[in-house]
Design a protein around this nucleic acid. Structure first.
Lengths: 218, 218
DNA sequence: CGTATAAGTAACTAAACAGTGACATAAAGA
DNA sequence: TCTTTATGTCACTGTTTAGTTACTTATACG
């Protein structure tokens, strides 16, 4: 019995095959969207026979949903590792703002997948049982963070945690997904390092001016 | 000579046919993206023979670029009509913030087209000669607006007009394009009227807290 | 009035596409 | 060892797709 934990033989490993398909699909869907992605391309990239893809995931759209769920699980797992509940309110917020920006920057495939899903009006995600449960703890966390800040006298009261989180996401997400068209419009490469740093500074500034009770000196 | 201004006969009107193709293409591309859009569908919707589409626009991708250029021209034309240069700085900024939100809300096809183009890393827009010229006057306008506000003593100095405009766009754009996945995550219809009003209030608040020199009373 | 040409049509093609039916083989337990 | 089942392969299909070839008809102008 070569147990589940031990290294398996290279042939006939269902779990590994599934993983390879999922990884290849993530790449292909992120690159070309749902409509543009090619099942044959995914199969080739995963080095499996196309038939297996249908055995494991049913069809193209179900595979897309599986990819999306995994992508969301990844970011929420990473957020959990921040342990914001153990940080001072200001530090916690700064950490969250920086994390959100960095994650989007390091994981462009996440942005592209979410964009594709929204192009389809969240048709697939609506069918997902896991998604909502994945997010509710995180939403509560931000509410707690704001409350702690108000109690400590550093944050304004009356800030809606949902709106705040949407704004933090928006300020980075929009810039990063739209940097290609924005670069054409502004005639400047907004994906280059100095431009990215400038943008992050602007985001941080905006969030803290919105949340802090006492304006900074200057 | 039934001049250009007079009403033309319904048959064999090249300009009208071109317009119909463009309008149908905008709808189809906005709905399904570049990869998902079907040329046959566009032809049917425009009530033309598919062949004409290739005569007028070359191919699918060139047609997509034409649609994009038109969409950008539309929003920039609408912005020009605001005549921000004739308004007081605070009123001008408030007008711009409200306009940007309303335009995105009323023209979801614009957001979807821009998203699609960014999925393709602005491949088409990069080839466009018109785009950059369309935007530079507008970018200057926001710089002037901020300067006037600083001189009048109502705005902080040192605000980057580019970052500010990107933020104004971001706060609305992200919410509106991603409202479908966000609605699933938050378990609440973010496209409904009360949620939209809440969001706009949050955007306005954030922008003015960032820009105003003297914090509001309260 | 006749003809050049712009505007439009019909029918087709070659390739790409998602999905499947029938078959083969490795692994694990009886 | 034998049998079952999970894992994997091969070759195919019916449809859809962007783009084209060959043709027709309305209209403007000499």
């Amino acid at each position: 019995m070569p147990a589940t934990s031990a290294k398996r033989k290279p042939t006939r490993d269902a779990a590994a095959t599934r993983e390879r398909i999922l990884k290849a699909a993530k790449l292909e869907f992120a690159k070309k969207g749902l409509g543009g992605a090619r099942v044959d391309e995914i199969a080739e990239r995963a080095m499996i026979n196309k038939r297996m893809l249908y055995v494991y995931f049913g069809n193209k759209e179900d595979l897309f949903l599986a990819v999306l769920e995994e992508a969301y699980a990844d970011i929420r797992r990473a957020e959990t590792r921040l342990e914001l509940e153990h940080l001072e309110p200001i530090e916690a917020l700064a950490t969250l703002v920086r994390f959100t920006w960095s994650y989007y920057l390091k994981h462009p495939e996440f942005l592209r997948l979410v964009n594709s899903e929204n192009l389809h009006r969240a048709r697939h995600l609506k069918r997902s049982a896991r998604i909502k449960d994945m997010h509710s703890p995180f939403i509560r966390l931000i509410g707690d963070l704001l409350e702690r800040g108000v109690e400590a006298g550093v944050f304004r009261s009356g800030i809606d945690p949902n709106q705040l989180y949407i704004s933090i996401a928006a300020l980075g997400y929009y810039y990063l997904t739209n940097r290609h068209t924005l670069s054409v419009i502004y005639g400047r490469n907004l994906g280059a390092a100095p431009a990215l740093d400038e943008r992050f500074a602007a985001i941080e500034d905006m969030v803290f001016r919105t949340v802090l009770k006492v304006p900074e000196k200057g």
